[in-house]
Simulated assay, not measured.
Amino acid sequence: MDGLFLGPKRSYEDFKKQIPVSIFPVFDSIRQYCMSLGNNAVEDVRAHRIVFGKSLSFRWFADLEPGNDSIIVKVQRDRKEPFQTITVTSETKMDELKGMILDAYNTIH
């Protein structure tokens, strides 16, 4: 049944072809960080972005969308709180962003 209506699920290998070379290292670094947070961290590769959540409930904690020279990162701690949007470039220091992502990941139950 896979792919009957929506087509086959996209892989990161396919998705990364659309990420501009200038921001690919930063994008890939954030992706690897999200996946390293725990065994239950999962990624959902969509048409124009990648969403990270926890497996069973797939409550998302990070959403990465590459642009021409930046990445729009949305971080959500709780459904009742609005998500935070951060524009990341190759010049952005990652410590604060990683802290926000870790906090959101740990908040989801």
Rank of each mutant, 00 (worst) to 15 (best):
F15H: 01
G3A: 00
T92S: 12
R79E: 06
I19W: 08
L37S: 13
D2S: 08
I50F: 03
G7R: 06
L37P: 15
P66E: 05
F61I: 09
P20M: 09
I108P: 11
E96T: 01
G99I: 05
S36K: 04
D69Y: 14
G67A: 10
R77V: 01
G3E: 02
I71S: 01
G53N: 07
K54F: 05
G3S: 00
T87M: 11
R79F: 09
G38A: 01
S29R: 12
V51T: 10
V51Q: 02
K80F: 13
E65Y: 05
N39P: 15
V26C: 11
L56Y: 13
L56P: 15
I72M: 11
M100S: 05
K9Y: 10
N68G: 15
Y33D: 05
F27H: 01
Q84C: 07
K93A: 08
V45H: 03
S57C: 02
V21A: 11
F52P: 04
V21S: 11
A41F: 03
N40Y: 12
K54C: 04
S29H: 11
A41T: 13
F58V: 06
Q76K: 14
S57D: 02
S70F: 12
G38Q: 00
I108N: 08
P82M: 00
S55T: 14
E81F: 05
G7D: 02
T85M: 06
G38W: 01
P8H: 10
P20W: 10
P8E: 04
I50Q: 01
P66K: 05
D69Q: 13
I101N: 07
E65A: 13
S90P: 10
G38L: 01
V88K: 06
M1S: 08
V88Y: 07
D63S: 07
Q84L: 08
G53D: 04
N68C: 15
G67E: 04
C34W: 03
P25F: 00
L64R: 00
F24V: 06
F24N: 08
N40L: 13
Y12I: 00
L37H: 14
D103R: 14
V88C: 03
E81G: 08
D28T: 04
T107R: 14
S22P: 09
K17P: 07
D95M: 14
I71D: 01
A41K: 06
H48A: 02
D103M: 12
T89Q: 09
Q18N: 11
G7A: 01
D44Y: 10
D28E: 07
S90A: 13
Q32C: 15
R31N: 10
L4K: 12
M94A: 04
V73L: 12
K93P: 10
I71W: 04
F61V: 03
Q18F: 10
N68I: 15
L102E: 08
R49M: 09
T85F: 04
